[in-house]
Design a protein around this nucleic acid. Structure first.
Lengths: 215, 215, 215, 215
DNA sequence: AATGAATGAGAGTTCATTCAT
DNA sequence: GATGAATGAACTCTCATTCAT
């Protein structure tokens, strides 16, 4: 693994993917599918080429190495997995759209579940590589912490001041929210191919979290 | 990956390990260390041999294949990870030692955290392989479900009847307990090498779960 | 290597080069530079295209194969490296312009040194390929021998008859002349990029050869 | 080419070669033969394996890379090519065994010709790589210069003082000696497989050099 | 004429596994 | 039982060459 750090730091050049030729997109799609199914290490570039219906040389014409293929898949995903509660978007919601903590919870739980479910394969690959690449997890956590400290803590304090949220450390609160969401997503994405009924799961999830986190 | 199913179904031949010669134990230990650090696929048998201080041939004298090495490591671990709420042990606790749900929570949270922390490497390998081997996770879940339906549900009903536990589906309750525990264990085991202050974490964990799960 | 024999046998199509388009000339120039710097085998057509500022396809539009590129470079060079004492030109010099052996030596030493120094890159490529392509050297030698036997021997006899040149076999005499000239050229072309002070070197060279070859 | 510098600086671990297994020696021998015949770049490890009668894996079991194979061949050769006029050996010859410059010439011409002829393949590979690896030539020359300045110049001065050797710069004298020797060796080693009649060539060589270099 | 995406044969290298010692 | 040299299939990657545009 060369450097997944770069992957995380780059804002994904969204257009890049659409600029790819048909064959290159097939390569990317085949990689996505195989990496998710059997893992990065157990996928050979020969199998990728075969599934994509191209020659092995073609696999390397756009993405110079097998590792760049992984980056090309995980880069955009990582770039979008975190903004959960990011920047402008959140600030504006704060007082207007989400007056109560329950609204807030409903929003992010539903939003992140939807995102992951519509990127199941990327998520699975990400989870797999995470086990192998602590760096990946460490950086993600650091970013998450920054996010929480800079943005989220203000918001949480907003609800805490309103008496709707228990006055725990924002970090601790976030940990529980993330844990419970993942408790729904991980078994589903890793084990089955059935789509999740997001509305139902969100309701359950929020119900529990509201009990645990209300003031 | 031949067949990890066998791994799970076998009651771990506990004695096997102690029967191993010094060299074979060194092999197992080296494998454990390397698999956890860089992953099964990225560990070569040559490196195992070097770290264990034996010849490459010796690596294969006891464990016929590299995969059997993985089994020899994960087998016992999986065999012990589940009994969490298993069989005799739980039944006897039920009414005597753990009269209140909080006692029960305290017990299993502390118990499982301790277990995982004292088998960090095995846990890490398990998590890594899980992403790659859905079979592993599916079987584990099925077993967990059986366990919950047969044993745990009785216990939970016991606390529910006492009015100490919310009357949700036992499966749902278990999901939250497991999720929150893992929310503490995963970042710690995957990211850092610092030991966890189990007592402190247990207290936090139980505090949150009690709020979320009390009747 | 297809057939470098053809390269030697072809009278270099002098005009060919000037007939080439700007792009083709750029390709030839880039090849010359890269072949000389890192060698034919270690130069990829991609690098040639990049340096020439053309597409990879263009590299092959004029020269059908990479090998033809080598031929296009070495052909003219080989065609001109030998005429040292060739044909009409020499015959006419013989008695008129170069009455003494020292004049003769001065002439060819200076002439060949100048030629090589103004074709350093070609010379370097030629030397490199020679090691790999004995055919190249064999043919060159045969041609040299023919040249010597047919033309040069007459001339040398002229000076021998005048008592200015030792009465050794012309082949032997030629060997020493060539060796000593190469003794100056090789280190300079292979090792450094500094231009040779040809006048100075010629004087030294001739001084030594005169001592060794005078009657 | 990683680092041929190391090759030159290491005194060749002579024993290493004899310690090699039969198969490894076959690999070395096959490499020597193929590198000399078609060049390093145009020899594939598959061909080496085939010629050596071993599997391709075996080629890499002792020599980790193809390049190390080249080093293993050139290292010892380079280590011995220079001592021509080296250290103790020369000093002791100086006044005792070689009273006259002609004796001295006879000695080194014969000695170096014998050495190269008994290492034809290595010499050929060396010449080929030299064209591609200026570093190789530069270092060799620097060493040669050091050798000449430190040791040889004393010796030459000894003969100059005796009035047997022209009072030119030692560097210049060396250049001619080397050039003329190579003038015999290069065509023979590069072009043919016929053994050289060393005695005859040495006599010719010395005869010419004596004429050119006598005071 | 020029492009550059695509090709596929072949390169160097790795590695789990075997087996004679 | 232990060794480590040997294996050969499989791997990632390179590159001269082709061809539709």
């Amino acid at each position: 693994m060369d450097n997944l750090e770069t992957t995380i730091n780059q804002i994904p050049p969204e257009k890049a993917i659409t600029q790819l030729s048909k064959k290159q997109q097939a390569v990317l799609k085949a990689s996505l599918s195989l990496f998710a199914k059997v893992g990065y290490d157990r996928t050979s570039t020969y199998e990728i080429a075969k599934l994509a219906g191209v020659s092995e040389g073609t696999v390397f014409s756009q993405f110079k190495t097998k590792n760049q293929l992984l980056h090309a898949i995980l880069g955009p995903f990582i770039g979008e997995i975190l903004p959960m509660a990011a920047s402008e978007f959140i600030n504006q919601l704060q007082t207007t759209s989400l007056p109560h903590f329950e609204d807030f919870l409903n929003y992010i739980v539903h939003d992140r579940m939807s995102f992951v479910m519509s990127h199941r394969s990327e998520f699975k690959i990400f989870v797999q590589e995470m086990g192998r690449n602590p760096q990946l997890l460490i950086m993600l956590t650091e970013r998450l912490n920054t996010l929480i400290n800079r943005r989220l803590s203000e918001m949480l304090r907003f609800y805490q001041d309103k008496g709707e949220l228990i006055t725990w450390d924002p970090m601790r609160i976030s940990r529980y929210i993330v844990s419970v969401i993942l408790g729904y997503l991980l078994p589903n994405t890793l084990m089955s191919d059935e789509p999740l009924v997001i509305e139902q799961q969100t309701r359950e999830c929020v119900e529990f979290l509201m009990r645990g986190l209300s003031a």
